[in-house]
Nucleic acid binder design. Structure first.
Length: 530
RNA sequence: GGGCCCGUAGCUCAGCGGCAGAGCAGGGGACUUUUAAUCCUCGUGUCGUGGGUUCGAAUCCCACCGGGCCCUCCA
């Protein structure tokens, strides 16, 4: 966790932290690592006394180059068109495909506690003319850009190539155009049919002014121009961009040599993989960002992103594992330690800052948050499967006093998450189910346990959970059977496992005739002489 | 062709020059009413492999092996 505080200690003066994203489709959990890192850096800077602005941009004039999320009839029409100009594929009121996907992603930010001071959309910025000076500089220095691409990335453009992408006046595509001449005010562009394999240009060409939104800068130049336009001082980026000779190196060089400005401090970060593999929404691997928040509230989710240094890959697989409960446990453990309660084992270095930065609200009183009662997620996941359990009452008992409104909110949040977890993620062993037929496990019961079950079945009067519980203990005691083995017999007979929920409540929730029949069946099974 | 990350206990990982660690899982034990709670207890693992540096290496250097990702189209 020291990484953010160290960064904050290293810089001088006001800071502008920036990131931007191309809204090309549905995003997965891994995509949230960037925004969380951005937010933690911002919080660390502010904690260190730096005046800090957090910006988040949407590169929505980028060309559509993935057809996965387009309807079949839209593919031919939309490939190569700026994302901001493609109609939303979902009829839910967004102005464009870009707005839809960007908004779904951005909506998650606030819930996660990531609150940029300003969002900007490139489709809004270009028409204002704010990018014009950079477009002009890029065109004037086209030879520098070409030289730099060759030198830094070994990319060889033709001598006539100019670093501007015109939005074709005829077909509206931006991914298919190339500029070959610049006269100081206008550029000559061609919308070529075969410039790229993934989209087909219309063949138009002509002289046009590249200013005021008629054209955009290619990605690497746009990135560097954003740094100049907004005065960006720190910008993390994913390792896909940070690789040697890759995008970041190109943009750094462009900033220095074309726009004559030092690039921002880079904080390269690794990906968040699932089962050791890259997440890919289109391949159905990994969980969509908007889905994971259903099962992971901000604190455990931020804990996942924060506890690991940015340059280390995180492996996270919520499906069929206890990864989710463990994140809750880990966060709770940090909180306990911060609150001065005794915790088992060693604590990570800087555990208090991990806890503090994991909180959703940057202004929260973190000591009060640490002191708050947080029910164990695993315990809740278990309790909600117990018929008739009054969970809020049980939690108040566990805490030793009534829950505060804030604690009740935490409880409700966790209950909702626990239900989602049990439905969609939990391993089979976390789910319990009353067995329709006699479980095999019941065959292993010994004579004493069978006698206990038989005795328990003698009285078939209706009982409440408490009464069942009392009856279990009394019956076990009268037969000289330790309570533990008595319960084990019941779990074997009904659940087919060695442990379970408070048995009394479980039995009380079931049909009385069924209970008695099962008890007798289990008591009789296997004891007959062979 | 190039770059980055990882390889330490069953799992997830910490340690990054000074006696191999934690959590979880698992084993054992305690408990006549929180029985998947709570408490106690149990870890010799070629620290991926081979060299090197050092009084001393999981830790630094080199090479290699394995896993993963990325760049060399576009963004």
């Amino acid at each position: 966790m020291e990484w953010a505080d160290e960064l904050a200690a290293r810089v001088i003066g006001p800071q502008v932290v920036n990131d931007s994203k191309t809204p090309s489709g549905t995003v997965h959990v891994g995509s949230l690592r960037g925004p969380v890192i951005l937010d933690v850096i911002t919080r660390a800077l502010r904690a260190a006394g730096h005046e800090t602005t957090l910006l988040y941009g949407v590169d929505d004039l980028d060309a559509m180059d993935a057809q996965a999320l387009l309807t079949p009839d839209a593919i031919e029409r939309s490939m190569g068109v700026p994302l901001a100009h493609i109609p939303d594929q979902v009829a839910d009121g967004h102005a464009s495909y870009a707005r839809h996907h960007a908004q779904v992603f951005i909506d998650l930010f606030a819930d996660l506690g990531v609150k940029p001071d300003r969002y900007y959309w490139m489709s809004d910025i270009y028409p204002t003319g704010a990018m014009d000076p950079f477009i002009r500089t890029a065109l004037d220095r086209a030879h520098v850009v070409r030289d730099l691409y060759r030198r830094v990335s070994n990319v060889q453009h033709q001598d006539t190539w100019h670093p501007v992408l015109v939005i074709c006046g005829t077909c509206g595509r931006v991914g298919t155009t190339i500029v070959t001449k610049w006269d100081g005010e206008r550029v000559f562009y061609e919308c070529r049919e075969n410039l790229v394999t993934w989209a087909r240009g219309c063949g138009a060409s002509g002289w046009v002014s590249p200013f005021g939104g008629a054209a955009k800068l290619p990605w690497n130049l746009e990135w560097a121009a954003q740094w100049s336009l907004f005065g960006v001082t720190i910008e993390p980026c994913g390792k896909d961009l940070a690789t040697a000779g890759g995008s970041r190196d190109r943009s750094d060089a462009i900033a220095r040599e074309v726009f004559e400005r030092e690039p921002p401090i880079n904080v390269p970060y690794e990906f968040l993989n699932v089962g050791g593999k890259k997440m890919s929404t289109s391949k159905g691997r990994g969980t969509a960002a908007h889905r994971i928040v259903e099962v992971l509230p901000p604190e455990p989710l931020r804990t996942l992103m924060l506890r690991t240094r940015p340059n280390t890959a995180i492996d996270f697989d919520p499906e069929g594992t206890d990864a989710v409960p463990r994140l809750f446990d880990e966060f709770d453990r940090l909180g306990s330690a911060v609150a001065g309660r005794e915790v088992k084992g060693e604590l990570p270095a800087g555990f208090a800052s991990i806890f503090k930065y994991a909180l959703r609200d940057p202004g929260a009183d973190f000591e009060a948050e640490a002191a708050a009662f947080r029910p164990s997620f695993s315990h809740l996941a278990f309790l909600i499967q117990v018929p008739g359990a009054d969970v809020p009452a049980l939690m108040a008992t566990e805490k030793g006093s009534a829950l505060t409104p804030h604690e009740t909110a935490i409880l409700d949040e966790r209950l909702a998450a626990a239900r989602v977890w049990l439905d969609d993620y939990a391993p089979e062993r976390a789910r319990m189910r009353v067995q329709e037929a006699m479980p095999d496990a019941a065959a292993a019961l010994d004579a004493e346990q069978r006698a206990f079950l038989a005795t328990l079945a003698e009285d078939d009067a209706a009982r409440t959970g408490d009464e069942w519980q009392a009856a279990i203990f009394a019956t076990a005691a009268s037969g000289g059977l330790p309570a533990g083995r008595a319960f084990a017999a019941l779990y074997a007979a009904f659940l087919g496992r060695t442990s379970g929920p408070r048995a009394g409540w479980l039995l009380a929730s079931l049909d009385r005739a069924f209970v008695v029949a099962r008890l007798r069946e289990a008591a009789a099974g296997g004891t007959l002489p062979v």
